[in-house]
Design a protein around this nucleic acid. Structure first.
Lengths: 210, 210
DNA sequence: GTCTATATTTAGATAGAC
DNA sequence: GTCTATCTAAATATAGAC
């Protein structure tokens, strides 16, 4: 039995294999995103990921060379997702509404047990991410986009012009990994949608009465 | 050479030993507080603590039976400290000012690299703390104290009465471990005092212009 | 009670069969 | 490329001398 001509049989087969490979890689990333939403980077193990995906741990390392590489890829993907979402907003949307939409999107991710847009205060992941060029580039692009909207909203007198730009930026970033969300969700007293609106309100309007 | 009469030499000596023991225990707790301000519970090692105090790791375990016990004790001590501070506020201080003072105190702790008043979103410490009766009791007492002030400020129309009590509470709690502080401090653009005032302002007044 | 040295456990990463 | 089995490093905790 000799081999079939390669051109007739192989092209669809390698395509299929490549598809399977990419599908598996996507599944790994998805599991990592979910697990990083449930526990911190340092508490998530590669065994967790392997079990969640349903493959052997060694197979993970054929896709990602290290835990850091996997989680970095997951975070970069997340940055890309938020940028895709932001790009999908109608161009004529007012700047302040875009900021609302951004924060709402981030909070919905958190409540859906997805990984936060930014790593928390002292996550071991932070140093790793900041050493990664792709991540830094994505974060810078996002920051500039948000910064432009903030400046616009300040010029319109909708965001307090007395607040320095970075303060507004970091305040929004911090809300994207806000522990108050978890506490409210654990309380079980409010629906996810109510929690999102309450946190949005405390962020933009503050605690004091108007 | 026979022993001296015990009553003449021992009483001061055991007292001195006890003092040394307690001083060492205080030093261990202080180091733990500082290290927990610099890194997360899961990243802090008992070797870190031992090195910081300048004693052997095994000696730590003569004072605290486990890493969890040590950090729980540190957190309970922290709760006690904030309660002492709150009790020191003049009785006639308006409720809203007391809330300001509480948050300011918490932020100053963070900026001084002290452990946060509450563990972060997914710290491995949280489950341990919540299993500890002393901690739960301290946290409950603090919550009730704060809750009373919030309710009072709402009745005076100073805190938005439309916000549920728990939302205000959790919003304040979340600010006590806010990553925005770290980001602003790393930026090096503002003094600690400025950072505290900026974060207080965004928390109480929100981002939008008045 | 403090130290040095060590036991134990866990998780990141790899070797080698298929 | 995926699996089972294993190596290695690090961190919690302890044993035993002094």
């Amino acid at each position: 039995m000799h081999k079939m001509p390669a051109m007739l049989t192989v092209p669809p087969k390698v395509s299929f294999k490549a598809q399977m490979y990419q599908a598996r890689e996507a599944a790994i990333l998805a599991s990592a995103c979910r697990l990083l939403g449930e526990k911190a980077f340092d508490l998530m193990t590669m065994d967790d990921v392997a079990n969640a995906v349903g493959i052997a741990k060694a197979s993970l390392y054929k896709h990602f060379g290290s835990k850091e590489a996997l989680c970095t890829a997951a975070m970069v993907q997340m940055l890309g997702r938020v940028q895709t979402y932001l790009a999908s907003l109608p161009a004529q949307t007012p700047a302040l509404e875009k900021l609302h939409a951004l924060l709402r999107w981030s909070l919905e991710q958190l409540l859906g047990n997805q990984m936060p847009l930014l790593p928390g205060r002292h996550s071991g992941l932070r140093a790793v991410l900041m050493a990664n060029q792709d991540y830094r580039a994505g974060l810078r692009a996002l920051s500039e986009q948000i910064g432009a909207w903030i400046t616009e909203a300040q010029a319109q007198g909708l965001i307090d012009p007395g607040l320095p730009l970075v303060v507004v930026q970091y305040t929004l970033y911090a809300r994207a990994c806000d522990p108050a969300l978890c506490l409210l969700k654990e309380g079980g007293q409010y629906s996810d949608a109510e929690i999102v609106e309450l946190v949005l309100r405390t962020c933009f309007d503050g605690l004091v009465a108007r």
